[in-house]
């Protein structure tokens, strides 16, 4: 299971890649593997305010629907338009072309509350 070192994670299997006061958000390799073929991602448009630990959308595979829980708070500044036609990018490249959206962080302290690679790995192993 791929878990990049320079990313942060929440316990709901989303990753965060921080770049200054902005952050990219996506789902982990573990999550995409659990979901199977992803068919549809329902996410808010730019301008929407994400609130940490609150649901901001759903991700749907052939067999199930799952909520997406925000790892950090912030305003959506960009969404991955490619997912509309190619949601399978999440299966293929969950940490890269399969990113979901980008936010402008409203509380940078929240980053410290997220899990490191090692902590996330531990979480997966404990289940």
């Amino acid at each position: 299971m791929d878990i990049p070192k320079n990313f942060k994670y929440n316990s709901e299997h989303l990753w965060v890649k921080v770049n200054g006061d902005k952050a990219l958000i996506g789902v982990t390799d573990f999550a995409q593997d659990q979901l199977g073929d992803i068919i549809y991602v329902d996410i808010p448009e730019p301008g929407y305010e994400l609130e940490q630990n609150e649901s901001f959308g759903t991700i749907e595979s052939a067999k199930s629907v799952s909520e997406l829980y925000a790892p950090v708070s912030g305003q959506v500044i960009r969404i991955n338009e490619s997912l509309k036609d190619e949601p399978e990018l999440i299966n293929e490249e969950p940490y890269d072309a399969g990113w979901i959206l980008e936010v402008k962080l409203s509380n940078e302290n929240e980053i410290g509350e997220l899990l490191s690679k090692e902590q996330y790995e531990e979480l997966l192993n404990s289940n």
């Binding site: 709901e12 999550a31 659990q34 991700i59 067999k63 199930s64 629907v65 909520e67």
Partner: peptide, 9 residues
């Protein structure tokens, strides 16, 4: 993630 449709495992 909160899986609503299949009770995996």
């Amino acid at each position: 993630m909160n899986n609503k449709n299949v009770n995996i495992n």
